[in-house]
Amino acid sequence: MKLQVAIDLLTTEAALEVAGQVAEYVDIIELGTPLIKAEGLSAVTAIKNAHPDKLVFADLKTMDAGELEADIAFKAGADLVTVLGAADDSTIAGAVKAAKAHSKGIVVDLIGVADKVTRAKEVRALGAKFVEMHAGLDEQAQPGFDLNALLLAGTEARVPFSVAGGVKLATIADVQKAGADVAVAGSAIYGAADPALAAKQLRAAIN
Rank of each mutant, 00 (worst) to 15 (best):
L126M: 15
A173V: 10
I206P: 07
A204D: 15
E156P: 04
V108P: 04
A78G: 10
P195T: 11
K104M: 05
D138E: 15
G191K: 04
A14T: 10
R158P: 00
L55N: 05
L137P: 01
Y190H: 14
Q142L: 15
K104L: 09
A198V: 06
V26E: 03
A135Q: 13
G191Q: 06
L197I: 03
A43P: 09
K121I: 09
A120L: 07
A149R: 14
L137D: 04
K129S: 13
L151P: 06
F57I: 02
L202Y: 10
D181V: 00
L68T: 12
A205G: 10
R203S: 10
L60E: 08
D27A: 03
L169C: 10
A95M: 08
A78T: 10
L126H: 12
E122D: 13
Q140G: 04
V182C: 00
D27I: 04
A180I: 01
K168S: 14
T12M: 10
E132K: 01
P34T: 11
V163S: 01
V56M: 09
L84D: 11
Q176M: 14
K104V: 07
K177V: 07
D146M: 08
A58H: 06
D53W: 01
L197N: 11
P143M: 09
A180K: 00
D27Q: 03
V167A: 02
L202Q: 10
L9G: 02
P34F: 09
V26H: 02
L31C: 14
V184D: 00
A114R: 12
A70V: 06
E122S: 14
L110W: 04
E69Q: 14
A65T: 05
S90F: 04
E24M: 07
L9Q: 03
V108I: 03
A93V: 09
L16D: 06
L60G: 08
A188L: 04
Q4L: 08
R124A: 13
L137Q: 05
P52Y: 06
G105E: 14
A199W: 10
